[in-house]
Design a protein around this nucleic acid. Structure first.
Lengths: 130, 130
DNA sequence: CGACTTGTACTAGTGTCGTAGTACAATCCG
DNA sequence: CGGATTGTACTACGACACTAGTACAAGTCG
């Protein structure tokens, strides 16, 4: 998986799980580039893409921050749509492999069972500190 | 989506839904290439890949046929594994978007309802003629 | 204002992927 | 055996994606 995709996913995940909170500042493109040993442009592309998605906000000369927009109703709706698209692709791919929707449901449900088992150890709601 | 992937998916789907039956002969690589207006090599790649997956069987000078191997227990098992991999990727991607496993289940279940509504019109089991 | 920090635009190089062209090998069938 | 038909191997070209280098623009803050 390309660098920029890894980084994008990591940031999205960090925000989704509350490890990065709203308003919090991210490292500068140059700083993160040094840390990850990639080109600053690669980081910049990621920040720009995430800003287009409404997840980040950038201010020149200041830095890049986690936006609050992804909690607004319109954004929620849009987000839902992305989930639907993802599921579309998923179902289609599975059906090309000869699996029915029920097969998928079975798989997912058996995973849910396993997952809840592990979660019991923590027993805290999602958006808490690490 | 690249040509070869489209073709692969189409063939897999045709077999999964019974439109292509076991033992049935597929068009020759050249014939199909002409029909689809692609290079014969593209078709050949697809046939070869599907043969490696155990779905097709090719005999030089004769043609390419739907194999029966994908019904054997070992193949079934392998097939299951592919589904698990697919679900892995799916869940991971969704979590990077901030969706939980339950969100996915909700989506899929609501689809299942819609689907069963449509299926009622046909009310025939899966592997029947077109 | 002016040095500094921040994100941005433009360009170029490199690798990979997809497809096509051509020539080859195996098999059938008369 | 030998022509015809089938799949296969090898090569090459074009397109695109990814990353890096360099130079630029916008904002901050003393």
């Amino acid at each position: 998986m390309p660098l920029y995709a890894q980084l994008t996913r990591a940031i999205r995940f960090a925000i989704a799980t509350g490890r990065l909170r709203i308003g919090e500042q991210l490292p500068t493109v140059r700083q993160l580039a040094v840390d990850l040993r990639v080109n600053a442009n690669t980081v910049a592309k990621v920040y720009a893409e995430l800003e287009r998605s409404g997840i980040l906000e950038t201010r020149r000369g200041v830095g890049t921050f986690v936006s609050a927009h992804h909690l607004t109703p319109v954004h929620r709706e849009e987000h839902e749509k992305h989930l639907q698209d993802l599921v579309d692709r998923f179902v289609e791919e599975a059906s090309a492999m000869g699996f029915s929707l029920d097969d998928l449901l079975d798989q997912l449900q058996s995973r849910r069972k396993k997952e809840t088992k592990n979660v019991e150890f923590y027993n805290e709601s999602d958006s808490n500190e690490e």
